[in-house]
Nucleic acid binder design. Structure first.
Lengths: 216, 216
DNA sequence: TGCCGATGTCACCGGCCGGTGACATATTTT
DNA sequence: AAAATATGTCACCGGCCGGTGACATCGGCA
């Protein structure tokens, strides 16, 4: 076996990520990672202090989604920016098993690692919303953080359910199939348009507010 | 120990639910459930065929949302029915640890247990959508399953994140706090109104369809 | 009464888990 | 060269896991 702590460390991190992506976070244990890396588990304790340290390293090397700045700068409208941000978030989660597993891990467990993951993600989300606010005028009646949280959560959840076979359904849809995922994306786009676009056109800021009646 | 299969079965189901709510889905195993129930694990195999069967029973005794029939019958409109169904779903998940853990379990693992859980839930969802379709006319431009999946997923995800302390934030909101949860509910209501109500008013079935332009 | 199925108890198995101590080999330092 | 340190290998531990076979006890039925 090759010597050198740097190479071995890297092999272990790669093995953990591979294991995470292939078998899920529940399969990530000391023994499994060591075997996957073709090394000995005692090295994980020596180099990372244990599993939490190792998985912290893994998480830092796998950011969940790309930075929002470029996205916001290039968008012509709030509706468009929201639309693109939501769809990219969904795709980023759906297509990368490591990101998916890290997110599920956050839901399933509370520990130091998942707390840090959540903190990083929250900072990114706040930055995105701040960027949206500074770039576009947000109608008073619109609770932008709530809308963004709502739709991001929707895409996140559905993306998390896109793991299994095509027969796996979630609220009657099969998010792992491309056609159904397109339906989800279209529904997202239509929802953003209806809430931001249509309501923005139909309702003035003083016309009753976010909680009041509709267009008709 | 009291005899009789009915009482024992009930004790086992209660023990599994208690364990699930108290210690999370990772703690639910044959041995733990048997000990919690004060019985022997072999009875779980005899009466339920194993953990999947038992958890299926648990899931059936803890429905995520109320039966579709009463809900749909009492609602005056599609918008209202959707609104109530979504909010009740969110509350049901947020306020009941058993429901939360079952849902997280489904996300975290693929095995016979979660397959059984998903099957139960999918059947209920299909019944709800079928009831909606039979009770209310659904505009052609509206992809009702997609919209329902989108918003149910949103509520589900946010409710799943409402476990920790009030400082835990998800996409800048704190779903465990009542004020922020109210914001989420208002955003849900406004979204349903915008998509079903406003678009239904502004667009005819032939006016371009679900993917086309807005009201203005 | 004697039988028999249903119900409940107990002990045990092989296997995997996280964790650790003892040791072997390579690299650097003195 | 010799000592000290870094790196890697191996074997073992106690504990929990899911699962099963053997047996005790109860209840109804012929």
């Amino acid at each position: 076996m090759a010597r050198g702590s740097a190479e071995t460390k890297e092999r272990i991190v790669q093995a953990a990520a591979r294991l995470l992506a292939r078998d899920g976070h529940r399969a990530v244990g000391i023994n499994a990672v060591a075997e996957e890396a073709g090394t000995d588990k005692v090295l994980i304790y020596r180099y990372f202090g244990g599993l939490p340290g190792l998985l912290g390293t893994v998480a830092r090397s796998h950011p969940l989604w790309p930075s929002a700045d470029a996205l916001v700068r290039s968008a012509p409208s709030l509706e468009h920016a929201l639309h693109v941000a939501l769809l990219e978030t969904g795709r980023a989660i759906r297509e990368r098993a490591v990101a998916r597993e890290l997110l599920v891990w956050e839901l399933a467990e509370r520990n130091e690692v998942t707390a840090e993951l959540a903190a990083v993600r929250e900072r990114e989300t706040e930055a995105l919303i701040a960027a949206l606010r500074s770039r576009f005028p947000v109608p008073q009646f619109l609770d932008l953080p709530a809308l963004y949280a709502l739709l991001s959560s929707a895409l996140a959840y559905l993306a998390l359910r896109a793991t299994g076979g095509d027969g796996d359904r979630t609220f009657t849809l099969a998010p792992s199939t491309e056609p159904d995922w397109r339906r989800i994306e279209r529904a997202t786009a239509a929802t953003v348009r209806a809430v931001v676009g249509v309501m923005g056109d139909c309702l003035g800021p003083g016309a009753g507010g976010w909680g009041a009646g509709g267009c008709g």
